[in-house]
Write a protein that binds this DNA or RNA. Structure first.
Lengths: 159, 159
DNA sequence: AGTGAAACGACCGTAGA
DNA sequence: TCTACGGTCGTTTCACT
């Protein structure tokens, strides 16, 4: 159990060594346990045990991350969505779209924020008009086209 | 070179096998090359070569991702920021804050979108009043508190 | 939780199709 | 770009602290 709004787990208190291990894996998720052990001052077996615990408890996961630009998706945007009716249904419908890589229910002047990845502006227009605005309950959208990414750390909440 | 707005690389055309390899690593970034090879029908060495190419070319990277909720950060939000003056300077200042995990320059009614991670509402209030609104050039902010995360795929653009 | 040792499996470089 | 193969290094299990 994790993810926003679900049963609140008590925070795992990480010591400096576990933090160092996570840092190592944030730099390179395929670094060997032995190598990490050298860096953090622990035996290979101990590192492996800690990584297993961190993974099984849901504190951390090691995954592949792709660069949309390199794959030809030159246009990214955040879409603010205002919904009439059940926001959950709209969020699910948005999440079902391939071009949508991020969906979160929010409190504020938008009910949902959705990040989208498109090849070009034409695709973005089509996505908005033919797919997103066609979803039952979508009242209005506001688009924030990405110009330049400055910082990105990897967190996760769904699983 | 990658990242939004930087020199546009021609998209790498991935065949079905490379896509399958990435899919394997998206499920578990520490899966062995041999195991991936069995799954996609390739030798261990061939998988290794492809993963190396994908990584070196910047199409993919394998990294650790952490769950803010499990670490005691119960409050996440997206902050829309309106700036007077140079948006770049403000984006850098925002990126320098620990609580900020995502900063992107946008076109639209916000100049910057920044995602923040806090332990609780009091921290979020302090972050807004004492840190974000104190940045030179920040004209106004609008906060979208996260209620529930529905979908999250991992892309990256900075490096 | 941690170490150390031995068996096993993964990884890496190189050769060759 | 792939397979094949051998040397090296990492991982796993287990007994022990």
């Amino acid at each position: 159990m994790n993810s926003l709004g679900k049963s609140i787990a008590k925070p795992v208190q990480l010591d400096a060594v576990s933090k160092a291990i996570i840092e190592q894996l944030q730099t390179d998720g395929r670094r060997s346990y032995a190598e990490i052990g050298k860096a953090v001052g622990l035996s290979e077996a101990a590192v492996r045990q800690r990584v297993q615990k961190l993974t099984e408890s849901g504190v951390m996961q090691v995954v592949a991350v792709t660069d949309p630009m390199q794959l030809g998706f030159y246009r990214q945007a955040m879409i603010g969505v205002r919904v009439s009716g059940d926001t959950t249904l709209v969020a699910e419908a948005l999440g079902a779209l391939d071009a949508v890589d991020y969906v979160v229910l929010t409190a504020g002047s938008f009910d949902i924020l959705a990040e989208v990845v498109c090849e070009n502006d034409d695709d973005l227009i089509d996505l908005l008009n033919k797919q997103i605005r066609a979803i039952e309950g979508v009242q209005s959208t506001e688009t924030f086209v990405y110009l330049k990414l400055f910082k990105q750390l990897y967190n996760w909440g769904t699983r």
